[in-house]
């Protein structure tokens, strides 16, 4: 059964059709990539799935339930975690506090007013566990804003993980990273997906990452899906090469 089932969504901004009749599915445990040139509308799709704004038309089913119209905080609670293209963390909280915030929120303890946070042993053990999973246990007491860019993106993944997601949306998880950081992050993401049985839907500009870990790929162009298939098929698809790979491919006379 599909975890995520996006059916014929449309979204326009002013005169621009940012999402034009997009349908896509993600099965349980599947790793799916959405690729396309800048401005193809990848982030717009993510924003609609995660409830940042609603599509003008269409359906988005998560585990069979229509989630359109729910605010982000509720969609997250259903099990769709999300990381952002630009690192998006709580800069003047420590790394530990960042994850602690997410775990407390997940466990519905955000409205506890009088008990000291440090006395929540189970929460804090879980925070520790997540920090270890993303390899940031040594930076626990550092202000998150002072972490390296790569570590901030790991922390973001950690924040998403805290919500025990069934599926994660990763928007350019390796953007701005050095090659070493990219490799480490990709391994982390793949490992986490297997460990927790999560589905992944991600966008990425680095094709080695896309073809390295995805099981299926959607190609987006000007708000429309122009191709879908296994990595090896996608790389051979002539239309994909034309619109997406563009000038990198020598044109046939």
């Amino acid at each position: 059964m599909n975890v995520l089932d996006v059916q014929n969504i449309y979204k326009a901004f002013g005169g621009l059709q940012a999402t034009n009749n997009v349908s896509l599915t993600v099965a349980k445990g599947e790793i799916v990539a959405v690729i396309g040139p800048n401005g193809a509308g990848k982030s717009t799709i993510f924003n609609q799935i995660s409830g940042y704004f609603a599509p003008d038309e269409g359906k988005i089913l998560f585990e069979g339930r229509n989630i359109i119209g729910l605010p982000p905080q509720e969609i997250v609670r259903l099990g769709i975690g999300r990381s952002f293209q630009r690192s998006n963390i709580f800069p003047r909280l420590t790394t530990f506090e960042n994850v602690q915030t997410a775990v407390l929120s997940y466990e519905n303890k955000a409205l506890h007013f009088f008990r000291p946070t440090r006395s929540y042993n189970e929460v804090n053990a879980r925070v520790q566990e997540i920090l270890e999973a993303i390899g940031l246990q040594d930076s626990a007491s550092q202000l998150a804003g002072k972490l390296s860019l790569g570590d901030q993106k790991r922390l973001e993944i950690g924040l998403a993980l805290s919500m025990r997601p069934k599926m994660m949306l990763l928007d350019e998880p390796t953007a701005g990273m050095s090659p070493e950081e990219t490799v480490a992050t990709v391994q982390l993401v793949e490992h986490l997906a297997h460990q927790y049985g999560m589905s992944l839907l991600f966008t990425e500009h680095d094709m080695s990452v896309v073809f390295g870990i995805s099981q299926r790929i959607y190609v987006l162009h000007q708000g429309q899906i122009i191709a879908e298939g296994k990595p090896q098929d996608i790389s051979k698809n002539p239309e994909v090469q034309r619109v997406y790979l563009g000038d990198d491919v020598p044109h046939q006379p």
């Binding site: 905080q73 999300r82 003047r92 998403a160």
Partner: peptide, 16 residues
């Protein structure tokens, strides 16, 4: 404090 630092991200960890 997390909402102060980044209200958008706070929403995405389930905070109202």
């Amino acid at each position: 404090r997390a909402t102060r630092e980044n209200a958008e991200r706070a929403q995405f960890v389930g905070v109202n």
